[in-house]
Amino acid sequence: MRPDSLGPEPPDILPRSPHKTYGLMALVRGTSPLVDATPEDAVSTWPHLLLRGLICALVCLSALLAAAMLFDAPLHDPASAAETPDPAKAPWYLLGLQELVHYSAFIGGVLAPGLSLAGLVMLPYLDRSHARRPRDRRTGICLFTLFLLANLVLILIGAWFRGPGWSWTTPWSANTPGGRP
């Protein structure tokens, strides 16, 4: 039975044919081809996504401008191969590797970066499970968090706790060089 909500019988545009498995059921007014469905679970990209992006960009640009006006980028003495600063530090994101190189050039220079890179590239192909809820991925989340934390700790050690001769120091001790951001 046709429900009453569909209105009067459709005009005879497509007469029912015994050879067809489809036919015109009804003509209804609406904005979406979905019948009896709530409005699609989607919003238009303009303005919903793009305005949010614009606001986010303005906030970030303001923060950057503020930082650029408040803090000057460091410029050290002119480069000189004759004067080796002690310690000579790599840029901050490589300090973790430099810390490992201090223990073993092979571990810090080859093994750790090689395994990290290979692991990151192959991650989606190694982790074949379809589990997406955090409670089903405890091991993975723990391992990845450990990976991030290990990097962070090594970088912080290299940045703040290594002084002349790569010896232990503290950020507040007198022999710690100015360091770099």
Partner: peptide, 21 residues
């Protein structure tokens, strides 16, 4: 910028690259 920080970062960094097998 060719300052000490950059020069020695590049020296140390390319030194690590040199450790690759």
């Amino acid at each position: 910028p060719w300052d000490q920080a950059g020069f020695w970062a590049a020296t140390v960094g390319t030194g690590i690259v040199g450790c690759l097998p």
